[in-house]
Every structure is written in structure tokens, then in C-alpha cells.
């Protein structure tokens, strides 16, 4: 399974071009493709503009996901990330400055990809501490090779220097490799991509991980976040709902009635002193007995008779009987 999680999509994208790109990616061996909608501000009404299903036929065995990339600058603004995440299949953040980068690495929680525009020079260093903090909690750092392949010499230089720095800081862990190909010419075959990154110093295994395992992790996690209960429990197959026959449903009602009565019963029982209270009292009695230097027998079910002191015994029918224990 190979993934390309970044094919830019805008409202003006030509569907013919898009179909061509998807078809080409599929012929190169990628089978999960995410269409990426890049936003600089959050609209007041969050609607997913990417049509699903797409208005043309896609190759068989190809999955199309819808992803949103939000550019962030000031983390103190309310970006309404949970609402955004709910509208799209995958949520990524693209920090524009150091503040945004720090927030994306450390404090913001909803996204699973940190995608940087590596064709520019960043006025800060990529420190292992922050990047690894992000990676350790499940975020992936995205490297888009098309920025280098389609860019001019200056962009390529910036891309390589930034990529090397990120690879040094993360030691190649938690990287996600995708294309971000604005035209179909920016797409390369998986083997070519792995070679490209291996020339830049990322080992082959890590490169393969970037387009397969790590990308899969993102997709599966994001899917779980949306479909499961708090991202922990998901019902994969709950079985077929059983069709009830009328006679059976009557029986069920009867059972329910019984159950109700039972519940009432238990309610009565709880009016008796709880087991914990009984135990406590028992313990207190024991202590008293030890204090007197005498051994004391207590029978289970009895309520803590203390020698010579009148106490209340609770019987099964819920009446209290005053007794005096003489310890015979």
C-alpha cells in the first residue's frame, strides 16, 4: 500500500487534469490519494467543498481522501480545529512562522500532519526537542518532493537544506513523504522518490516508511478519531440485528417486567447496612475485643455485637431488633 497524501485541490481545479493525475498516480502504484484543500483562514461556515464521490470515474482499488491544510500564524486565534477536522478526512497544519510552528508541534492537538513549505528559508532552527515532541504524540512531518522537483534552483536549495535539517533533527523518524504536485508532471514513481531522498541522506527503509507505513498510520488514526468513541474503542462489526417474531417479542416484554421487579428488590436490599459498613463495625468490634484481651466470635451476617452493649440487629425482613450480647 502506497500513499500520496497531498494532491492540491482548489475550486478551480480542472476535473480532467485531476482525473489524469489520479490515473497517473494509480498507474505508478499509489493506491490512497488525498486531495488537499489549502486554507489561509477558516471560513465562518465550515463546509467541505471537495465533491465526494468525484464527478469522474477513478481507477479501481484507489481510495480518495479529502484533506484540509490550514495555514496558521498566531496560535492565540481560535481556528476552530475540531469543527474543521470533523468536515475533512485528514487535517494538517502549515505553520507560517515560528509561533505557529511551536503551537503545531507542542500545543495544538487536532491535526496529524505538520506540513511545511520547505522552499523558503526559515528564521529558526528545527530543534529535535520540538519535532520529536510532535512525532511522539503521533504527528508526522510532511516533506513534499514536488516542491524541489518542479522548483527553480533557489527553491531547490532551500528545500534540500530544510530537508536535511529536519532529517537530522528527527533522525529520519516520523516523516511523511508526499508529492504536493500542482501539475501531473510533479509526480514521481515511488522508487524514484525513495532514491531521491536516499541521495539526500534518508535511508531507504525510512524513505519507504514515509510513503507507506507512516502515511498509513496517519490515515488509520484520523479514521479512528472520527468513527470511534474517543479514539479508543471502535465497533468493527456488531453482528446483524436479529429480526424479532411477535411471540418472541412478547416473551421479551415479560422478561423485561421481571427484570424491573428484580431491580426494585435490589433497591430494598440496599437499605440494609452495606457490606462495607458491616465490615467496618466488625473491625471495630475486633479491636475492642483485643483491647479487652478477649477473643470474640462473630458470625457472618450478624451486625457487630459488642459485649454488654445493646445493639441493633438487622434481620432479613428489615426490622431492627434491639439485643444485648452477653458473649455466652
Amino acid at each position: 500500500m502506497l500513499y500520496d497524501l497531498n494532491i492540491p485541490w482548489t475550486c478551480s481545479t480542472d476535473p480532467l487534469e485531476l482525473q489524469r493525475t489520479i490515473s497517473f498516480l494509480s498507474s505508478l502504484g499509489y493506491d490512497t490519494i488525498a486531495l488537499n484543500h489549502i486554507m489561509s483562514t477558516v471560513p465562518s461556515q465550515i463546509v467541505n467543498p471537495i465533491p465526494s464521490p468525484l464527478p469522474f470515474t477513478i481507477p479501481p482499488n484507489t481510495t480518495i481522501l479529502r484533506r484540509c491544510t490550514l495555514q496558521i500564524e498566531d496560535p492565540s486565534l481560535n481556528y476552530r480545529l475540531p469543527a474543521l477536522a470533523a468536515a475533512y478526512d485528514v487535517l494538517a497544519l502549515r505553520p507560517k512562522n515560528e509561533k505557529g510552528y511551536d503551537a503545531a508541534c507542542v500545543s495544538l492537538l487536532e491535526h496529524s500532519i505538520i506540513s511545511l513549505d520547505l522552499t523558503q528559508r526559515f528564521p529558526f532552527y528545527f530543534r529535535p526537542k520540538k519535532l520529536m515532541a510532535a512525532i511522539n504524540r503521533g504527528c508526522k512531518i510532511e516533506l513534499c518532493y514536488s516542491q524541489a522537483v518542479m522548483g527553480d534552483a533557489a527553491e531547490r536549495r532551500h528545500f534540500i537544506s530544510n530537508t536535511l535539517e529536519i532529517m537530522r533533527a528527527t533522525k529520519g523518524r516520523g516523516l511523511l513523504i508526499s508529492s504536493e504536485a500542482t501539475s501531473v508532471l510533479g509526480v514521481r514513481a515511488p522508487a524514484d522518490v525513495v532514491n531521491l531522498f536516499s541521495v539526500w541522506g534518508l535511508s531507504r527503509d525510512r524513505g519507504m516508511e514515509g510513503i507507506s507505513i507512516n502515511a498509513r498510520g496517519v490515515v488509520v488514526n484520523e479514521g479512528l478519531k472520527r468513527s470511534s468513541y474517543r479514539g479508543v474503542v471502535d465497533v468493527i462489526y456488531g453482528g446483524e440485528p436479529r429480526a424479532l417474531e411477535p411471540a418472541e417479542s412478547n416473551k421479551k416484554k415479560a422478561i423485561e417486567g421481571q427484570k424491573k421487579r428484580k431491580a426494585d428488590d435490589t433497591g430494598e436490599i440496599t437499605s440494609q447496612p452495606s457490606k462495607r459498613a458491616q465490615k467496618k463495625a466488625k473491625h471495630a468490634a475486633k479491636q475492642a475485643g483485643i483491647g479487652n484481651g478477649m477473643s470474640q466470635k462473630t458470625t457472618p451476617g450478624d451486625s457487630t455485637p459488642v459485649e454488654g452493649i445493646p445493639s441493633l440487629v438487622v434481620t432479613k425482613d428489615n426490622t431492627l431488633i434491639p439485643t444485648i450480647n452477653t458473649n455466652g
Binding site: L185, R188, A191, N195, L196
Partner: peptide
């Protein structure tokens, strides 16, 4: 050499060349 091929986007040595992608298979 492989990297150089990945970076080529045109049929070389041809006037008015078609854009293309080189794929090492």
C-alpha cells in the same frame, strides 16, 4: 544519474519538446 533523471521534465535534445517524466523501473 538516477536523481538527475528524476529532475528532468522534458525530452532532451529536441526542439519544442513535450513535457515528460522519467521513471526508472
Amino acid at each position: 544519474v538516477w536523481t538527475a533523471l528524476s529532475f528532468m521534465t522534458k525530452v532532451p535534445g529536441v526542439h519544442d519538446a513535450k513535457p515528460c517524466v522519467f521513471r526508472v523501473i
